[in-house]
Every structure is written in structure tokens, then in C-alpha cells.
Computed example of a mutant assay.
Amino acid sequence: MIQKHAVRLFVARGYDGTTVNDVAAAAGVSPMTVYRHFPTKEDLVLADRNGALVAERLAATPAGQPLVHRIGSALVESARTLTVGDDGFLLARLQLMISTPALRARHLDNHHLLQQAIVDGLGDEAADPDAAFRAGAAAAACLAVMHTALVRWAADDGRADLPALIATALAATFGAAHPRPD
């Protein structure tokens, strides 16, 4: 609830034009409560649980498939889950991340954390250093492709189907290693 108020205010007033006190007042909580859940102002936009969702989707993929296919499928399915019933919150967060210089660098930190969550989600498959290296490389490649799709989606103001856009970008990059969208 606090994060939704923050994103709404950042969109309406601008990121720099909104204070944590403004967010606290809009959410009906104290500034200390905001800081307890979101240690920095950037976290009000960037905090998410996408890593756990992607790792869960990845664990559900068959181990015999190519790694980029499995990771890509997990990213597409996670996007599908995140966009079902979304009221524009995901798009607003993404547009803020792209357009706000203070958030862009931290957004890259989120990609690093997501890459690590993907490697961790492979469990024993990425237990040794060489396997972890290959998994990290595959995850980084898939995340770069997804980032390109996310930027396109944000530029198009969310009109396209995000999971299909990610799947299209993955297929364009990895060809036969990833299925084309429905």
C-alpha cells in the first residue's frame, strides 16, 4: 500500500518533487513506518519480489531443456503473473525507473539481484563454480533481452502484451532455443 501511494505520487509530482514525508502522509503512516519497510527513497520504486517469482517458475521448468529456454520461459511466465490484474502499477514503476536518473543505476542493481536469484533457483544444477558461471552468463543474456522488451513496453505505454513481447525478443535473440509467442 505504501509503495502504491509512492509510485502514484512520483508519477503525479515527479520523483524529485516528492518526499518520503509526502508518501507517509498519503499512505496514512508515519515516515518511520515508511523507512521501516523501505530503507531508501529509491526502494519505494524498486523493491519487489520478482526474484523469488522467477526462481519459482524456473524450478518448474524441465531440466533437459537449454538453459536460456528455461530462464526465458521463467521470465515470460513471471511477466504473465505480474501483469494479470495489474492496474498499471508495474508500468508506472518501470517508466519511473527508466526516466529517473537516480533510479536507473539502482535498477541495474535489481538486475544483478535477479540474475543471482536465477542462479540460486537452479540449485544443484549451479552448485559448482563452472556451472554457476554458465548459469550466470545465460541469466545475464536473458535479462538483457528482457530489459530491451521492457523498455519497448514502457515506451509504448504498456499497449503491447508484455509476456508476448518478452517471448518475441527471446526468440529473436536465441532463435530455436526459445519458442515463439502464441
Rank of each mutant, 00 (worst) to 15 (best):
T81P: 01
E125H: 14
S78H: 02
D130V: 13
T81K: 08
Q116N: 14
A47M: 07
R104C: 06
D128V: 14
A127N: 08
P129Q: 10
A60K: 12
T33Q: 09
T19I: 11
Y35A: 04
H111K: 11
V119W: 04
P181I: 05
P101W: 12
P31F: 05
V7P: 04
D182C: 08
K4D: 11
S73F: 00
S78A: 11
I71H: 03
P129R: 08
I166L: 07
T61H: 11
F174S: 07
G121A: 09
A26Q: 05
R104F: 08
R134C: 03
L114Q: 11
V145D: 07
L114D: 02
I118M: 09
G121E: 07
V34D: 04
R93S: 01
S78L: 01
P66S: 12
V151F: 01
G136A: 15
T40P: 07
L46H: 08
R106P: 01
G17C: 07
A127E: 13
A127C: 05
L91S: 04
A74K: 10
R80F: 00
N110Y: 11
L67E: 04
V54Q: 10
H69I: 01
D156E: 10
A149F: 09
A47R: 10
T148I: 09
A102C: 12
A154M: 08
V23E: 02
S73R: 11
D130L: 14
A27L: 10
Q3L: 11
I98W: 05
F133S: 08
A135D: 05
I166K: 05
A74P: 15
A92T: 05
L44G: 02
L75I: 07
H147Y: 13
L94Y: 03
I118K: 08
I2F: 05
A102H: 15
R152G: 01
R70Y: 03
R134L: 13
A92R: 12
L165V: 01
D22S: 00
A149I: 13
V7N: 06
G64M: 00
L122G: 05
L67I: 12
H37M: 03
A137N: 09
D161V: 15
R70D: 02
H37E: 14
L91C: 14
